[in-house]
Nucleic acid binder design. Structure first.
Length: 140
DNA sequence: GCCAACGTTGGC
DNA sequence: GCCAACGTTGGC
């Protein structure tokens, strides 16, 4: 089981927008970066990811689940770009900010901390547990 | 609003 | 295939 992190500008697609889908899946479209696309190609249905707000919030807002495998991005005719669908699973009791992650020595190797520009990132199981702990979210 | 980091493009 | 120029992202 792999873990992921999806980055979004809240002005484009926010956690509230995702929640408003009420558990329905939504295309994670608009990704125009090979590394990010390759990460999505590696995803399996049922895997979990963090939903991160870039720019003003800079925080992990909630948890999403991959609910459809990688498929062509409906927002472009360019066959290079693909995406998965995700649905909201849980809201972080406390959003975990980038500053929180940087302040925790255990997260020093996190992609979020070291490659700020990658919009779809892998997260290790250890990092996943630590961020959940920081957010006050206990996995059932 | 600025700037650093990174990715992509295109000329050679 | 290299590298300079350019564009974009995102933190500050």
């Amino acid at each position: 089981m792999a873990y992921w992190l999806f980055k979004s500008e809240p002005g484009e697609w926010s956690w509230d927008d995702q929640l408003a889908k009420d558990g329905e899946g939504e295309e994670w479209d608009g990704i125009r970066n090979y590394q990010a696309r390759n990460n999505m190609r590696s995803m399996q249905v049922g895997e979990l990811g963090f939903f991160y707000h870039s720019q003003s919030d800079k925080a992990v807002m909630g948890i999403v689940e991959v609910c459809a495998p990688c498929h062509p991005d409906s927002t472009t005719d360019d066959p290079r770009w693909e995406c998965v669908d995700v649905r909201a699973v849980a809201t972080m009791p406390r959003p975990v900010t980038l500053a929180d992650c940087k302040a925790d020595a255990r997260l020093a190797g996190m992609v979020l901390v070291n490659n700020t520009r990658l919009s779809v990132q892998p997260v290790t199981e250890e990092e996943w547990k630590i961020v959940c702990e920081l957010g006050g979210y206990s996995q059932s």
